[in-house]
Simulated assay, not measured.
Amino acid sequence: MQHQLSSGLTIESETIAFSRDVHGLAYYVRAEGPTSLLWRGEVINGHDQSRHPQGFSAPIGMPDSLSSAGAWHAVTDQMLIDRGLVAGNTVQWRYPSGVVFQAKYLNSTRLDGVLVLMTFDECSITAPSGDVLYDPSWGQFDLAVAE
C-alpha cells in the first residue's frame, strides 16, 4: 500500500492508517510493518525497510510555531533556524489538532528543494487525548512533513 503526502513524499507499507479528530480531519498517519519512504518513485537513501522495520508515523499539519509560513513547502532553512531548529536543540511544538511533539533536532532532508523529512532524537509525541503516539525509547524519529 502507498500513500503520498502533501510534500510529495510517499509512504509504502503493508498498512497505512490515520487518526482523526471529531470532525474527521486526519492529524496523525501510522504505517505498520516494514516501511519505505519514497521520493518520485525511488526509495530515499537511508529510508528503506531496514530503517523502518516496525513501521513509520508522523503528525499531520503545521506546528503552531511554524504556522506563519502558511504551508510546509514555504518553510525555509532560515525559518527553522529562527525558531530554534539547530542541531542539538530541543523543540516543543503544539499542532492545531492538539498533538504535542517534543524532541531534539538533528537534521533536515530536502529533495529537489522540497523539505520532506526532519530527523529528531529523544522524541515524545502525545495525542490530543494524552495517549502516547511516540516514546523516546523507540529511537530516532523521522518526521515526514505533511499538511
Rank of each mutant, 00 (worst) to 15 (best):
L115A: 02
M62T: 03
L9I: 13
P128H: 08
L25Q: 08
Q2G: 06
T126V: 15
L106K: 08
T76Y: 10
L106Y: 10
A69S: 12
V114D: 01
G61R: 04
G61K: 00
T109K: 08
G113P: 01
S13M: 11
D135N: 14
V22E: 06
H52C: 11
I81T: 13
G46A: 09
Q54L: 11
Y134W: 15
T15W: 00
S129Y: 09
P53T: 14
Q140L: 14
G41M: 10
G61S: 04
H23F: 10
T76C: 10
T76M: 12
F120P: 00
Y105V: 11
S7K: 06
L117C: 07
D121F: 08
T119P: 04
R51C: 07
T10Q: 06
S13R: 08
L117T: 01
C123A: 14
D21F: 11
L9F: 09
C123I: 00
T35K: 00
E14D: 12
S129M: 10
Y134I: 02
P136A: 11
W138T: 06
A146Q: 03
V75T: 07
H3M: 15
S97L: 11
I16A: 02
L115Q: 03
A31F: 08
G61I: 07
G98Q: 07
Y28E: 04
S7I: 13
A31K: 00
P136Q: 12
T76F: 14
M62Y: 06
V116N: 01
G61H: 05
Q2W: 13
H23P: 05
N107S: 13
E14S: 12
A31H: 04
T109R: 09
D131N: 10
E32G: 02
D121K: 11
Q4L: 12
L85K: 04
L85F: 15
A58H: 06
L37G: 03
S137Q: 13
L37F: 10
F18E: 08
S124D: 06
G88Q: 14
A146F: 03
H52N: 15
A58T: 15
G41Q: 07
H73M: 13
T10A: 11
M1T: 12
L37R: 03
F141M: 06
A144H: 03
Q2Y: 14
D77K: 12
S68R: 11
Q4V: 15
A146H: 02
H47E: 13
Q140W: 13
Q54W: 13
E32D: 12
V99H: 05
M118K: 07
L143T: 01
M118L: 13
R83D: 05
V43N: 00
D77I: 15
P34F: 08
D64T: 15
P136W: 09
L25F: 08
K104N: 09
A31D: 05
I16C: 03
S124G: 02
G139Q: 09
D112Q: 11
G84F: 10
T109P: 05
S7C: 10
D142L: 00
